[in-house]
């Protein structure tokens, strides 16, 4: 490799590692350190306690549904925003990022108010027998809101990069529009769709602020794991909170690695020259 003449490597990397250690790594290490006070059996008891398991089920179940909703509608939205023109398109495009910009507490109280029995939406759903606010459905609504941009923003550049010749080639070969989408376009955008889905899922699992207002927070029914951690903390059960936090951290870290591996694969997928099978 050529000699690098630029200055500041030691300073830049040194400061990066120091700041990373102080703000992120040391605090997370404290979490692991604290949980080491527990024996494996104790840890297992807390993590698989009835209430804890129920909360994990609620958290992962609603995050999964929300991420699936966003995968479907995010794909649709990204497609419409890239391929079609309609009045106000730039405005709509900017609005997609609202969940990134709007504080979660604001989203939480607003959604709770909208979907409550006397709210704008809840008022029309309740007579039909749908209760949204203060039920697990409310959790899904909140999680869908806060994870909405991920799939759209991951897919948009990928759809933009599809060469029009690919679609023309499929059409000349006799494929219908639907066949072209299913056999040619969807496989091309699938890695990005999965990445976006995983990002949305990962964000939804950890979400707290928007959910607690709309969920009703009934143990075993609509209590999410982050809320259970806070509840344990408020009862000064720091060890219990720590054990649950470790469970969540491990899962988050696994998801993060999965996303990175996926993105690495996307970047290298069809450029590597070696045989792939």
């Amino acid at each position: 490799m050529a000699r690098n003449v630029l200055p500041g490597f030691r300073l830049g990397l040194g400061y990066t590692l120091l700041y990373l250690s102080l703000i992120v790594l040391l605090p997370l290490a404290a979490l692991v350190f604290k949980s080491a006070e527990l024996s494996a059996a104790q840890f297992w008891d807390i993590a698989t306690g009835e209430r804890a398991l129920a909360s994990l089920r609620v958290t992962f179940g609603s995050a999964l549904i929300a991420a699936l909703i966003n995968a479907a509608f995010g794909l649709l939205t990204a497609w419409v925003l890239v391929r079609y023109t309609f009045p106000g398109k730039r405005f709509v495009d900017a609005l997609v990022d609202l969940p990134f910009a709007l504080p979660t507490a604001v989203a939480g109280i607003t959604l709770a108010t909208l979907y409550a029995g006397n709210g704008w939406i809840g008022r029309h759903l309740e007579p039909l027998g749908f209760k949204v606010a203060f039920t697990p459905v409310g959790i899904v609504v909140a999680l869908t809101f806060i994870s909405l941009p991920f799939v759209v923003r991951t897919l948009q550049p990928v759809i933009e990069d599809i060469e029009p010749e690919i679609e023309e080639a499929a059409a000349v070969l006799g494929a219908s529009r639907w066949q072209t989408f299913r056999l040619v376009l969807l496989p091309a955008i699938l890695p990005a769709l999965i990445t976006g889905f995983t990002l949305a899922f990962s964000r939804a699992i950890g979400e707290y602020g928007s959910v607690i207002f709309i969920a009703g927070n009934m143990p075993f029914i609509s209590e999410i794991t982050p809320l259970l951690i806070v509840a344990k903390l408020e009862q000064y059960d720091i060890v219990g909170a720590t054990a649950l936090a470790v469970v969540m951290l491990v899962i988050s870290f696994a998801l993060l690695l999965a996303v990175n591996a996926l993105q690495w694969r996307m970047a290298n997928r069809h450029s590597a020259a070696g045989a792939r099978r």
């Binding site: 990373l20 992120v24 790594l25 605090p27 997370l28 404290a30 979490l31 350190f33 604290k34 990962s202 964000r203 699992i205 950890g206 979400e207 707290y208 602020g209 794991t225 982050p226 809320l227 951690i229 806070v230 903390l233 720091i238 909170a241 720590t242 936090a245 969540m248 951290l249 988050s252 870290f253 998801l255 993060l256 690695l257 990175n260």
Partner: peptide
């Protein structure tokens, strides 16, 4: 990957670590 890590951590856990 480590720089991205805080995005993957639940905000509640992020608060908890400082309490610890």
């Amino acid at each position: 990957t480590l720089i991205d890590l805080p995005f993957a951590v639940s905000p509640v856990v992020a608060g908890l670590v400082f309490v610890l």
